[in-house]
């Protein structure tokens, strides 16, 4: 059975027409797979490579460069929460916010809560320094957050 969903294959197919090389569809392909499955498995890498006429090693080379993608050994929780630690957020409590969430959820940055609900990540500048400290949930920014705000938004209540 195919690891890539029919939707993933359709998205990859649509992107092929946009670039003069098939390799350029690597990031769009990795994104659609990770959005659907929470990780990019070895089998998915191999199937993407087949479609893009590359070696799986080339796909894996790109995947491993961007800390963004996860393999099947280390899948994401249902939600992915990034807390910014760069200078503007640090000056307004970003590091303390991250430390507080680690302690409340009993995990380290990069890990997922035991119930599989939330993956906590540290982020470098998220581009929302006007609302420091800020967080990103999946790909939506929230400005000026406290640990209680984060819990409310991602765990449905403090």
């Amino acid at each position: 059975m195919s690891e890539l969903s029919s939707n993933a294959k359709k998205v990859i197919e649509e992107h092929l027409g946009r670039y003069p090389s098939k390799q350029a569809v690597t990031l769009p392909a990795l994104h659609v797979v990770q959005e659907e499955k929470g990780c990019v498995s070895r089998k998915a890498i191999s199937e993407i490579a087949d479609i893009l006429e590359l070696s799986p090693a080339q796909i894996n080379d790109t995947l491993s460069f961007y800390g963004f993608f996860r393999t099947e050994e280390d899948p994401l929780g249902k939600k992915r929460v990034w807390i910014c630690r760069s200078l503007p957020c640090m000056l307004r409590g970003g590091d303390e916010l991250l430390a507080e969430l680690c302690s409340r959820w009993n995990i380290q940055p990069g890990q997922t809560t035991a119930d599989g609900e939330v993956t906590l990540e540290l982020a470098e500048c998220l581009g929302a320094c006007d609302g420091a400290p800020c967080m990103l949930v999946d790909d939506e920014l929230t400005l000026c957050v406290t640990a209680d705000d984060v819990e409310k938004q991602v765990r449905g209540g403090a």
């Binding site: 090389s21 390799q23 350029a24 569809v25 690597t26 990031l27 990795l30 994104h31 893009l52 790109t62 460069f65 961007y66 800390g67 963004f68 993608f69 982020a123 470098e124 500048c125």
Partner: peptide
Amino acid sequence: ACAYICGEETGLIESLEG
């Protein structure tokens, strides 16, 4: 995919190329 270096113009080009 969350990498600062993609803002360097030739890093961006390499990233665009996959």
